[in-house]
Simulated assay, not measured.
Amino acid sequence: MNLIAIDIGGTTIKIATWINQKLKMVFTIDTPNNLDTFYEELTDAVNEIKASNKIDGVAISSPGSVNKKTGVIEGASALPYIHNFKIVPELEKRFGLPVSIENDANCAALAELVAGSAKDCSSMAFLVIGTGVGGSIIINNQIWHGAHLYGGEFGFMIIDGQQLSALASPVSMAKRYNEKTGKDFDGKTVFELADTDDLVAQEERGKLIHALATAIYNIQHSFDPEKIIIGGGISQNQELIPLLNDEISKIRNKLNIATVKPILDICTLKNEANLRGAVADFEKEH
């Protein structure tokens, strides 16, 4: 099956082909600021690729809560014009091809399931840690969307009276640190400063690690996935997994009940994850 894969981002849209079981980037375009231009530029891109390749469909990774039953992108994102109407049939009409759309975090999770760190699993949880905390749940090789499309919205979990996104995001960690010190460091810098004698950095990284470890413990004992995969920029820090494992061990040791040790791993597909997952979603749907 030959496909065009599209990853819609707030700043750029990536467009690739999936031909002979290989993903190949074609080009990127700046994300339009209105629906008419969005339709026009994507249709031009699809037609350009169709002119020299036999294409069977278009697989799209998108922000927002994608309702697979209705073909509507619900929720909200930086692109309000793609939400709350039946966008799938509109795109199919313009492309002249079948179209699938799935949420970007769900696409990244599917990519890790079919070709990444969870390749040998049938169940997994995927946490994306960035400005906030999002993610995805896969059970029996299928995305668990939830009754209200909130499956995998881990950032809404309450840890110590606060949302997980407020505690475990590197952006929030840096904000807390800067408010206390009067400095202007990013999350990566604060995370690394915690390895020095900077007590404030140690405290704030400790909050992040404890909140994330608690969430992981809860996810493991709620859904019991085979693996929990961590994505986002912070996942590239080699200290993250050991720190989380240490904190999870402390949590388990405090409890007088038998518990499961989560198996943690980091995402491997990185920049290609959304595109590869969109392909996997199309193949499941069609």
Results as ranks from 00 to 15, higher is better:
Ile209His: 01
Phe156Arg: 08
Ser77Arg: 05
Gly161Pro: 04
Ala59Ile: 14
Val26Pro: 05
Gly116Gln: 09
Glu90Met: 12
Thr37Trp: 03
Asp265Val: 07
Glu239Ile: 03
Ile209Val: 15
Glu92Tyr: 12
Tyr217Asn: 12
Met124Cys: 08
Asp246Gln: 15
Ala125Gln: 01
Leu269Glu: 07
Ala105Ile: 03
Ala45Pro: 05
Gln238Met: 09
Lys54Ile: 11
Cys121Val: 11
Pro225Gly: 05
Val128Met: 13
Ser123Trp: 10
Thr131Met: 08
Lys14Asp: 09
Phe282Pro: 02
Gly64Glu: 09
Ile234Leu: 14
Glu40Pro: 02
Leu79Ser: 05
Tyr150Gln: 11
Asp104Tyr: 02
Phe27Ile: 00
Asp30Gly: 13
Val128Ile: 12
Lys188Asp: 14
Pro225Gln: 09
Ile13Asn: 06
Asn271Gly: 03
Val128Glu: 00
Ser249Phe: 04
Phe191Trp: 11
Ile251Arg: 07
Leu167Asn: 00
Met157Lys: 03
Gly134Ser: 07
Thr131Ser: 09
Leu110Gly: 00
Pro89Gln: 06
Glu272Arg: 10
Ser123Asp: 10
Asp265Pro: 04
His221Thr: 08
Glu285Asp: 12
Asn256Tyr: 14
Gly231His: 02
Ile8Gln: 00
Ile143Arg: 03
Ala211Gln: 05
Thr259His: 15
Glu48Leu: 11
Val279Pro: 00
Ser172Leu: 05
